[in-house]
């Protein structure tokens, strides 16, 4: 339970960091280290060198503009979670960050580090995808921007090249008047989500949804946008019927295999219930979030009617009555 041997380089500038990464084949970038160090302690990761970006002052800035929350690569989760300007500009960030591990981990871990780690059930990748955000990375040939839709390739795999360092993440602000919600099902507080979902809805003057974004984590090999569920809500007044249709579309999107915590059908069932909330918790202009508030887990809400053709009972497969099938690979935080 100790890391294997490695070399440690702590550059003071972005240029030096890019050069150090190029000069150490196989090296990995470390920021807060709250995902990488557990993997190294387990020796699941044995990089020959770490490029430690914690001394680079320009990566420590958190900026809120009228367009986006811009999170530098050394900004810790907890800083973003507690920032009042961030809460006003993009309340989904604080809501989702409350689910990220525990406070001591959030005190050290970074938002950009979580994005680059790209666990398929982690909250920050889901949020970048939900908000149509993007990453800025730097490599030997300069800087480039990568849209969230192009960034997450697979579980723990992004389109950042091995010789590139992520500099910042841009989370667009919540559109004025938009409703939003974030829900998550996890076995224990702070665990990786078995399923999580974020929603942003903008309504037209007549009350119909003119723009819908729904993103999900934990149900596929990477965070995904639920296009069919989005389409089921677009142009509607979000009544029970259309929300139920969207929930069915959401459940159909589950492709993750079962594991020790949830069989695949069980996960799909939770996921349906989690998606079919009667209405977004923040249906009008968002109030300042109360970051210690925890919404009741979706499983405690009344289960919605089963979709036609479903043979899964809803009561038997709730979180209190697990249906573990196979011991699939699990992730460590």
């Amino acid at each position: 339970m100790k890391p294997a041997l490695f070399d440690h380089v702590a550059p003071a500038s972005i240029a030096d960091a890019v050069a150090a990464l190029a000069g150490h084949p196989g090296a990995m970038v470390i920021a807060g280290g709250q995902s990488l160090l557990p993997a190294m302690n387990f020796r699941l990761a044995t990089p020959p060198a770490l490029i430690d970006i914690s001394r680079i002052a320009e990566l420590k800035t958190l900026t809120v503009t009228d367009r986006a929350v811009v999170v530098g690569a050394m900004v810790r989760h907890r800083t973003v979670e507690l920032d009042p300007a961030v809460a006003r500009a993009q309340p989904l960030l604080a809501a989702a960050l409350a689910h990220v591990a525990h406070v001591p981990i959030r005190n050290r871990g970074t938002v950009v580090g979580s994005l680059c780690h790209a666990d398929a059930s982690a909250e920050m990748p889901l949020l970048l995808l939900l908000t149509d955000g993007h990453m800025v990375v730097a490599g030997p040939t300069g800087r480039r921007t990568i849209a969230a839709a192009d960034f997450f390739r697979f579980h723990l795999t992004t389109s950042r090249a091995a010789d590139e360092i992520a500099l910042e993440a841009h989370f667009p602000v919540l559109p004025a008047g938009a409703g939003w919600a974030f829900e998550e099902v996890a076995r224990r507080s702070g665990d990786f989500a078995l399923a999580s979902v974020g929603v942003i809805v903008e309504r037209a003057a007549d009350g119909t949804a003119r723009k819908v974004a729904i993103a999900a984590g934990g149900i596929a090999s990477r965070p995904i946008r639920l296009t069919e569920a989005e389409n089921a809500l677009l142009g509607t007044t979000l009544n029970d019927e259309t929300v139920e249709l969207a929930a069915q579309a959401a459940a159909a999107a589950v492709t993750a295999p079962g594991d020790i915590h949830a069989s695949a059908p069980c996960a799909a069932s939770w996921w349906r219930r989690s998606s079919a909330r009667p209405s977004p918790p923040h249906a009008t202009a968002p109030p300042p979030p109360d970051r210690d508030r925890r919404r009741p887990p979706p499983a405690r809400t009344a289960p919605p009617p089963q979709p036609p053709g479903s043979d899964r009972p809803t009561e038997e497969d709730g979180p209190d009555d697990p249906d573990p099938k196979e011991d699939g690979p699990r992730n460590i935080r």
């Binding site: 490695f6 196989g26 990488l36 993997a39 990089p47 020959p48 579980h155």
Partner: peptide
């Protein structure tokens, strides 16, 4: 850490201090 799971020879046998 799937990308690093394949065994890579340690580039250093030294223990830098």
């Amino acid at each position: 850490m799937i990308p690093t799971r394949k065994k890579t020879a340690l580039a250093t046998s030294a223990d830098p201090r």
